[in-house]
Simulated scan of single mutants.
Amino acid sequence: MSAEQFNELVRSRRSVFPDQFDTTRRVDDAIVEQILTNAIWAPNHGKAEPWHFTVFTGEGLQKFANFQSELYKELSGENFKEITYGKLQQHPLKASHIIALGMKRTPNKNIPEIEDVEAVSCAVQNMYLSTTAYGIGGYWTTGGITYREPAKAFFGLGEEDKLLGFFYIGHIAVQPTGAKRQPLEEKSTWVR
């Protein structure tokens, strides 16, 4: 791959939301395995590899939808919103695969927790670039039950671990619109 091809890959990456997925097609499991393999090649401090991925597909999508919507309902109390409950029930069914993004805390306490979080974030960027390379859609969401402590056990996470969201994968039915970035000069400082 040339530098120009890589630049194009990075700059063409877009989030593709569940409503933009083609719900009649499924992504091949072998492609999802390649995406996850690329994810685990992310940089990480001390070779800790703090990521833990739980993949939902087929009937698993309904199990995921039921779990997250019911947990939301249980924990929301007077803040419960029927529209949110409905989205938590329906959006997972629009995806081909959903990957729960877990961070397993590194046993080496000399590695700050934030560095484990950063490593998983790098893994997610690899997932985004991989979906772009395969011509399929990807979307990282941190909504719903992501930061709800009682959710962690469902995804195989312990007390010190973190749930960092969900990565939705699907074939693209509606192309995402172009994105903008502020000029580099506004977001960088060079010291010479």
Rank of each mutant, 00 (worst) to 15 (best):
E8F: 06
R11P: 01
S12E: 09
R13T: 03
R14C: 05
S15R: 04
F21G: 04
D22I: 02
D22W: 10
T23Y: 06
T24F: 02
R25E: 08
V27K: 03
V27N: 03
D29R: 14
D29S: 11
D29G: 10
D29H: 11
A30P: 01
L36S: 05
T37Y: 11
N38P: 00
I40R: 14
W41A: 03
A42W: 08
A42P: 02
A42H: 06
P43G: 05
A48Q: 09
E49S: 05
W51C: 01
H52S: 11
F53W: 15
T54A: 08
V55P: 03
V55Y: 10
G58Y: 08
Q62P: 00
F64M: 05
F64P: 00
S69Q: 07
E70N: 15
L75M: 13
S76I: 08
G77N: 09
F80D: 05
T84H: 07
Q90Y: 12
Q90T: 12
H91D: 15
P92I: 14
L93W: 12
K94G: 03
A95T: 12
S96F: 14
I99S: 10
I99G: 11
M103Q: 13
K104C: 04
T106R: 07
K109A: 09
K109L: 13
N110D: 15
I111H: 09
I114W: 10
I114D: 05
E115F: 15
D116P: 02
D116K: 01
V117N: 03
V117T: 14
A119W: 09
